[in-house]
Write a protein that binds this DNA or RNA. Structure first.
Length: 474
RNA sequence: GCCGGGAUAGCCUAGAGGUGAGGCGGUGGACUGCAGAUCCGCUUUACGGGGGUUCGAAUCCCCCUCCCGGCUCCA
């Protein structure tokens, strides 16, 4: 398995530090507003990466932090007149709800900054002891030039940084590139006691502290949106490696940005799309598929057309699954394979390999998705060509789709279906009644039954072998 | 300015030296009371432009055009 490492700017063979275990940290949100489609892009991407690693047999320990105290939260709270703590709490809950709705597997630990103030203070003190940090008038700062490797992730040079730096008035920094580890509280701001007076942690220090607390001083994967490479992740590396003296993270993974109609999504442009709005209009699996149609590192452009494509794609795949389900009821144990069976088997086998090869190559979901369609096509073609399908062929296809379901987080309902026997019998009864009506050429009433069932999410389809029914899922 | 990512058929997306990439859409046909699903065709010898290397280039090299992002708010 190969992954693209932002640190080395190339694909590398993936080898976790401990055999059989992957420890990964994904930068979570600052909870000051609704979760948007850009978050969805990043967190669905990492969800699939995590799912694939688990699918491959790794035990994955996944940590995602919440920044529940910072400047943006305070600013927003001041604007709305809310208590910063309550505001953060509210949006944190919304975020978790949105993640659940998007079928994103929960992290194993969701450390919150406000629950780790002591550890953060300890971390800052260590940096102070080692001579990397100094106290200024308004806070404690990390002295960037003391860390020789600064810039190794983002490729940024300290000199360039100085040219473009905006030093806010009154800041107690020695150098413009230095960044805050601890901010002293201004009147009315949330605060915690510390050796440097009351205040709150800087932004970057939380991730260094909490990731090393739960994953150790060295771990496998650290991820986040592309926009976090600089300054956030660069600063995290500086702090952590200055503190431990060891190489910290093995593989840095970053997701590409979400665009809206070719422009960056931002509030000022008025193209800010929340996950809540999206979920009102689209099945979460449609949103997931939309995201997976593009490789995670490439920018993803959101358009109405694009999401409609995803919807059509998902419908098609669900149709295939329903076709298999219907065919299963008339499938037989094969005593003999014909040309059709060999063709279908080979097509499934080849596509399956393609799927795993694509996912092994830096989680190329777009390429892997082709393989899913190839299996879909192969099965559909097979079903149109044979009268009595071989059960083994259908099972091979189903096993493949089950794997896809686990990795992509789609087709969930299909594979979780409970046997609601009563309902199925009732549907079958209505189909029988409708068949009689059709025989009597009472199409008006026959169509009414079909229409009513459709309203209830059951699609009837007339075939030469009789009427079948499918669940409408998209 | 510096750094990075792009331009692939009507549309969306992979691929990265060698036998018609996948989907969507459109369209014709098979099947159908109609609808739906599916299948079989067609749209389909696609790779921003110009040079070069090579038996062979979307793919490698050089130049150019255009788009996007980052450069202390950001997933």
């Amino acid at each position: 398995m190969r992954v693209y490492n932002t640190l080395t700017k190339q694909k590398e063979e993936f080898r976790p530090l401990r055999e059989g275990e992957v420890r990964m940290y994904v930068c979570g949100p600052t909870v000051y507003d609704y979760t948007h489609l850009g978050h969805a892009r990043t967190y669905v991407a990492f969800d699939v990466i995590r799912r694939y690693l688990e699918h491959k047999g790794y035990m994955v320990l996944m940590v995602m932090n919440f920044t529940d105290i910072d400047d943006k939260i305070i600013r927003r709270a001041n604007e709305t007149g809310e208590d910063p703590k309550e505001l953060a709490e509210k949006f944190l809950r919304y975020f978790l709800e949105d993640m659940t709705a998007l079928k994103i597997k929960p992290a194993d630990i969701y450390p919150r900054v406000t629950e780790h103030i002591e550890e953060i203070i300890d971390f800052v003190r260590k940096l102070e002891d080692r001579g990397y940090a100094y106290e200024g008038s308004d806070g404690v700062y990390f002295e960037v030039q003391k860390f020789g490797d600064y810039g190794k992730l983002s490729g940024i040079k300290v000199e360039e940084l100085r040219q473009g730096a905006r030093v806010e008035p009154g800041e107690g920094k020695k150098n413009p590139e230095d960044f805050a580890l601890w901010k002293k509280a201004k009147p009315g701001e949330p605060k915690w006691p510390s050796p440097w007076g009351e205040g709150r942690p800087g932004w970057h220090i939380e991730c260094s502290t909490m990731s090393t607390k739960y994953l150790g001083e060295q771990f496998d994967i650290h991820g986040g949106g592309n926009d976090l490479i600089f300054p956030h992740h660069e600063n995290e590396i500086a702090q952590t490696e200055a503190c431990t003296g060891k190489q910290w993270v093995r593989y840095w993974l970053h997701t590409g940005f979400l665009m809206v109609n070719g422009e960056k999504m931002s509030k000022s442009l008025g193209n800010f799309i929340t996950i809540r709005e999206m979920l009102k209009r689209y099945n979460p699996e449609v949103i997931r598929l939309f995201i997976l149609q593009r490789h995670y590192r490439t920018p993803l452009d959101y358009t109405e057309e694009g999401i409609e494509h995803a919807k059509n794609n998902l419908e098609r795949l669900y149709n295939t699954l329903e076709n298999i389900r219907v065919a299963m009821s008339k499938a037989e144990l094969p005593f003999r394979w014909e040309k059709e069976e060999f063709e279908a088997y080979n097509a499934i086998r080849d596509a399956r390999k393609k799927f795993y090869d694509a996912m092994d190559d830096d989680f190329n979901t777009a390429e892997a998705l082709k393989a899913v369609f190839e299996v879909s096509n192969a099965v559909n073609r097979y079903l149109t060509r044979v009268e009595k399908p071989a059960e083994s062929i259908l099972r091979k296809a189903l096993e493949f789709f089950k794997a896809v379901s686990e990795v992509f987080g789609i087709f969930e309902d299909y594979f979780r279906e409970q046997k609601a026997g009563g309902e199925e019998a009732l549907i079958q009864f209505l189909i029988d009644v409708r068949a009689r009506l059709r025989k009597e050429r009472n199409f008006a009433l026959a169509d009414r039954i079909r229409a009513e069932l459709r309203e209830m999410g059951i699609q009837l389809e007339d075939t030469p072998e009789g009427t079948i029914w499918k669940r409408i899922r998209v």
